[in-house]
Design a protein around this nucleic acid. Structure first.
Lengths: 234, 234
DNA sequence: ACTTGCATACGTGTATACAATCCAGACTTT
DNA sequence: AAAGTCTGGATTGTATACACGTATGCAAGT
């Protein structure tokens, strides 16, 4: 490698020693895909990316393989890579997954939350919601994901946490494409606060129920917007 | 590559064209790890494995990376690979995951099952249970996994299917170590048939409930045996 | 005897060269 | 003119050589 590695824009995080090359490439590519800087369906060529990042094919291929197994890029053997397309069926299965995992995880969180968790969650619940600017919209999306992830973390099961993290990642892509952006009715902070209140009251059933409603409504809204925008079924 | 690739023992499956090298290595290593031919904690060295399989490091590393991300092997940077250890906490989180996913998936299956699904499931429900021989025990484990996977497939959500597949894989390892083998009370075929009956009756709630009981009991039994066998908490 | 420092060997991390495969376009043939 | 085939280029798949970091064993000093 003969190029200085560009430092990953990492908000707040210390980033002491330079990240391992494949991890770094993975993170950057993933960010570009999730934020639709690399559009769904666009072609990815190893050589081109190597030149762009100033690395050889070996670490890059490791990153692409990882993205491939997470279904963010598609690799047709001996043919090439493409950024995974966005489909209605794919998004539906994602909503279904979230509906299965996050409500029970919230119920667990109601049982297992410490006072520190609750304080943290209360701080995460309120989101800055300013859809008039791109940056404001992006901040809102990240804040929303952070809240949901923080809930699952409170359930104290690392497997669940990883799963939801991955699901939220995939979830952000249609959102970033501004599908359903204008349809956003109101800031979901109110609903978030209700959920936190249920956790604080140790009301597992209520937490489960509120989370289910919350995810279902948001998912249906985006799904409708996607259908209206003409995304393919599969 | 100058060596004939050993064909993967694939029961029934056609295996038309030779599998891609990394996929093949991944499958073989995974099988060895899950069946505890490669014991938890044992060291894996790239060069050694390369010689053994007659391939170069590139495709092998791809397989190891995949296993690493699935938490079947652990890689400490610049130090080496080890087969992931088995811990009580890890297994507990796995049970919790199955308890969250499979019961709702069964409920979905009750709604979405076709007559063909039901026939298939009925055929999968009965397991050959002969714990007196190693082979009989292994067959039982595989049959059990196949049944649970067939249920989830009936839910018609590929994401759920992949998740449960991965969870069942990890689940088999403690079982293969014969932990809790002698404690096995009876063939679970009866419980499986009850679940299939609930699906056939389109009784989603009953299917969910039965599946939850089934997983909880099996999990607790293995967990107790693991604790008795002295597996570490973490 | 125990600790500390260094040298060496071992194993992973990266780069690059080579082989196999697929696709596109042009040419030939019917 | 249409269809089939062949050839060239592009891109991934694999192998291998080199660079770097880490651990281990030995020796010297306390």
């Amino acid at each position: 490698m003969n190029l200085v590695r560009p430092s990953l824009v990492e908000l707040g995080s210390a980033e002491i020693r330079p990240t391992a090359l494949p991890d770094h490439l993975y993170a950057v590519l993933k960010q570009k895909i999730l934020s639709c800087v690399l559009l769904p369906g666009s072609r990815l060529v190893e050589k081109t990316l190597c030149d762009e990042f100033g690395v050889s094919r070996t670490p890059l291929r490791e990153a692409l393989n990882r993205l491939n197994h997470e279904e963010l890029v598609i690799l047709q053997p001996n043919a090439g890579y493409r950024v995974a397309p966005i489909t209605l069926a794919g998004f539906r299965s994602l909503i279904e997954l979230r509906l299965i995992i996050e409500p029970p995880a919230s119920a667990l969180a109601a049982v297992r939350a410490t006072p520190a968790d609750l304080a943290d969650l209360a701080a995460c619940a309120d989101l800055p919601y300013d859809p008039s600017h791109d940056q404001g919209f992006a901040d809102y999306c990240r804040g929303n994901a952070r809240f949901h992830l923080r809930i699952v973390r409170t359930a104290r099961n690392p497997r669940l946490e990883n799963l939801v993290m991955s699901a939220l990642d995939l979830y952000q892509r249609p959102t970033y494409l501004r599908v359903g952006r204008q349809l956003d009715p109101a800031n979901p902070s109110a609903r978030h606060r209700e959920i936190v209140a249920a956790l604080a009251a140790r009301d597992a059933d209520q937490a489960r129920h509120l989370m289910e409603q919350h995810i279902r409504r948001g998912g249906e809204r985006i799904l409708e917007a996607m259908a209206a925008a003409g995304y393919p079924e599969a």
